[in-house]
């Protein structure tokens, strides 16, 4: 438990130092000269067209990331805990996304 607390404390120290650098840089850097005249991001196409902005797929990214990360980690725990019977199930769960990704890009 003490070891985990050291890890947490070390990470928090790094995080605080990085945040301090970021805040110091934001205080010391000059203000944008044309602040208040900011424009929307450029749209693809002619300048006359209405500018486009995309809504970021935050939840989707989080879900895909969690699923993708959990498979190898879960596999390791299966092996190290002698629960090898679960491994084929994990491989079976991981195979369809890989096949779909491969096929989609073969078609494109």
């Amino acid at each position: 438990m003490a070891q985990q607390l050291y890890y947490l404390a070390a990470f928090m120290l790094i995080l605080i130092a990085s945040t301090a650098y970021y805040i110091a840089a934001s205080i010391l850097a000059p203000r944008p000269r044309r602040q208040g005249e900011a424009t929307l991001p450029y749209a693809c196409g002619e300048k006359g067209r209405e500018a486009k902005s995309l809504d970021p797929p935050y939840p989707l990214v989080l879900i895909v990331f969690t699923i993708a990360e959990s498979v190898p980690i879960a596999s390791f725990f299966c092996v190290t805990q002698d629960r090898l019977a679960l491994l084929p199930l994990l491989v079976a769960a991981f195979a369809p996304p890989l096949l779909v990704t491969g096929r989609r890009h073969e078609r494109s």
């Binding site: 650098y21 840089a25 934001s26 010391l28 850097a29 000059p30 203000r31 944008p32 000269r33 900011a38 424009t39 929307l40 991001p41 902005s53 970021p56």
Partner: peptide, 13 residues
């Protein structure tokens, strides 16, 4: 770069 002005699009979170 740390000392440069920070220009961000209006839409940025």
């Amino acid at each position: 770069l740390l000392g440069k002005e920070d220009i961000t699009p209006l839409t940025m979170h």
